[in-house]
Design a protein around this nucleic acid. Structure first.
Lengths: 185, 185
DNA sequence: GTCTATAGGACGATAGAC
DNA sequence: GTCTATCGTCCTATAGAC
């Protein structure tokens, strides 16, 4: 892994752990093993580096979601597989976390990949739920778009509750609750 | 409103907008109109002031939730009233937001009010759902505790999605989806 | 109770040698 | 491409006058 790559990966980790405000160029240099000059040679500054890191994290989230939502099984099975997939509950969502960072949200460039990722995810999940409804797996009374938004919200909120409780099991419990609600429809 | 009070209220606003790392004593002084010496006279430092602010925000969240969950109507009506209550969707949850702040979560003193608040909320909501089930308003197959956790997660996640989209309607849509799932049970 | 002065360090970035 | 030196600013906190 070359220097540029190490800088991006270190920034991804730090943004995940500390957020944008809490991540300093010095900390990035320390973790990546790159020097001051090296960092500013490869990137224009903190926000430029953050953009590269955020873009990659967003792509990764989409790829992983697509692996399950576009996988095999009935529509409801694929939704369940996506919801149940193991996640680092206590670390939080590397993309959703940035949503709470006003410096990120105030910058249209940094914000775009986050906005696009969740728009895509809600829409993709709504599509699978529409499939489920068409196949008779899901009540016709349920609106796919609203249901999809609620399910994505459960995942994002589950991170919050797990961190608040200091207990990863809370994440699983929220998912159980969501699947329970989905089950009888 | 005296100086001490203005300091606490200003800190509450800033923690809400900028998080703990993003909130500086200087910014608190600017917003409250209190001087340097004044702030350090009333509080030992940043974390001491943050504790007062967080404790108050946590109490407020509990009081507001209790107003609806312990209000009038059938259990399911009370849950719906709680979920549908108007919130500042784009500002995020003043308590849940702090969950993403590693400095806050690393400090047991600052963390306790957050942990207790969500533990109480999940439990309180589970109680109302148990009432609903006993009254035949809700399917016996649904576990009150898991369902309550999922519903609280929907609210917390709805803030994330609304901020990501830059659109408060997304919050309402997540709530609609959750109530839709709850309806047919 | 509130003020100003000051501390020692970290922040984000730039300059210029090698 | 990477290094060290340096900049000006802000950070959190303390000291001591009023």
């Amino acid at each position: 892994m070359d220097t540029r790559e190490r800088l991006i990966e270190s920034t991804r980790e730090l943004l995940w752990e500390c957020g944008y405000v809490g991540t300093s160029p010095k900390a990035i240099q320390r973790r990546s093993g790159a020097g001051q000059g090296s960092m500013y040679h490869h990137f224009r500054g903190k926000s430029d580096l953050a953009l590269a890191a955020i873009t990659r994290s967003a792509e990764e989230l989409r790829d992983r979601a697509e692996a399950e939502l576009g996988g095999s099984g009935t529509p409801v099975q694929r939704v369940a597989a996506y919801l149940r997939r193991e996640r680092a509950a206590l670390r939080g969502c590397p993309v959703g976390r940035l949503t709470q960072d006003s410096d990120v949200m105030a910058d249209p460039t940094l914000r775009r990949p986050i906005e696009e990722t969740f728009a895509w995810l809600r829409d993709r999940l709504a599509g699978v739920l529409a499939e489920a409804r068409a196949a008779g797996e899901l009540a016709t009374a349920l609106d796919p778009a609203a249901t999809a938004t609620a399910l994505v919200a459960v995942l994002q909120g589950a991170y919050v509750l797990a961190r608040a409780a200091g207990d990863a099991d809370v994440y699983a419990r929220a998912v159980d609750g969501a699947l329970g609600l989905l089950a009888a429809h």
